[in-house]
């Protein structure tokens, strides 16, 4: 189908994008890679009055390490994360996750800022952001990841607020992200992340609820010396995933436990 009619402007700077968003008001949307937005518009599930295209904004396209942090501009594409030596050296799990997003077309256009702002429950980066205490920096303020993913497709972003940067800690120790899905380009049915930071495990899950989940019960069990198998039994504690076409709720909880165990074991191996 063809999207409903909308206004369209290209922004070349964050300043200009902010002004355009203010001018167009609440029904406007930011267009980055467009890989979630455009399909929704084509199905007319989303009918924004205007699109502010931020793709020309050069200042949002960078990957740097500064002050002991990995700083990633919002317009960095999956393919850049996947191939970046800076990312591979400082946060290899991020490069590995990027490598498993969608297909080549998606990876060439989809952006990290778009993934964060869209806040799909099945998004992979939000899980990493959450367990690593990343920050989502906008044109207005800094959000801690734990306060950013409020609900499915829901963030504290205001209508004229633009994601500009994601700031991760450096973490290049043992890690593994297991993305369980049927087809290579699919979203995760369930994803499990294990990353060692400063000697302690950070454990997270994707698509087991409306937002990413940090498995503190598993982290605590590991910290008190439990085996990966025993600790992973806690991965489904408190989870209440919804059933969908790919998986029942019970199966998702089961996968949360199995994949968490495997992620810890494989990260440690």
């Amino acid at each position: 189908m063809i999207p409903a009619a909308f206004e369209y402007e290209r922004a070349t700077s964050v300043q200009q994008a902010s002004e355009l968003l203010q001018r167009f008001g609440e029904d406007a949307k930011v267009l980055a890679g467009g890989h979630s937005l455009i399909p929704l518009m084509r199905l007319r599930l989303s009918q924004p009055s205007a699109l502010v295209d931020i793709n020309p904004i050069k200042e949002l396209d960078y990957i740097t390490v500064e002050g002991g942090k990995l700083r990633v501009g919002a317009l960095v594409r999956h393919v850049q994360l996947q191939n970046s030596d800076t990312v591979k050296q400082n946060l290899p799990i991020l490069a590995e996750v990027a490598d498993e997003v969608g297909d080549n077309q998606v990876r060439n256009l989809g952006s990290i800022g778009g993934v964060m702002a869209h806040a799909d429950a099945a998004g992979d980066y939000p899980t990493l952001a959450l367990i690593l205490d990343a920050e989502i920096v906008t044109n207005k303020r800094r959000h801690a990841a734990k306060d950013f993913f409020k609900d499915i497709f829901t963030t504290p972003l205001e209508h004229d607020e633009l994601v500009c940067e994601v700031v991760f800690p450096i973490a290049n120790g043992p890690h593994k992200y297991i993305k369980f899905r049927r087809r290579l380009f699919d979203w995760a049915i369930v994803g499990a992340a294990a990353q060692k930071v400063d000697g302690g495990w950070r454990i997270g899950l994707t698509n087991v609820g409306p937002t990413p989940v940090r498995s503190t019960a598993v982290e605590q069990a590991l910290a008190s010396g439990a085996s990966p198998a025993d600790a992973a039994e806690h991965a489904s504690d408190g989870l209440n995933p919804s059933a969908d076409l790919r998986a029942s709720a019970d199966y998702k909880k089961h996968l949360a436990r199995v994949l968490t165990r495997r992620a810890i074991e494989q990260a440690s191996a």
Partner: peptide, 16 residues
């Protein structure tokens, strides 16, 4: 119908 798009109606690709 619950499988009205190619996201939900699963057709495998060469990889699978």
């Amino acid at each position: 119908l619950r499988t009205g798009t190619m996201l939900d109606y699963m057709v495998p690709t060469a990889v699978e």
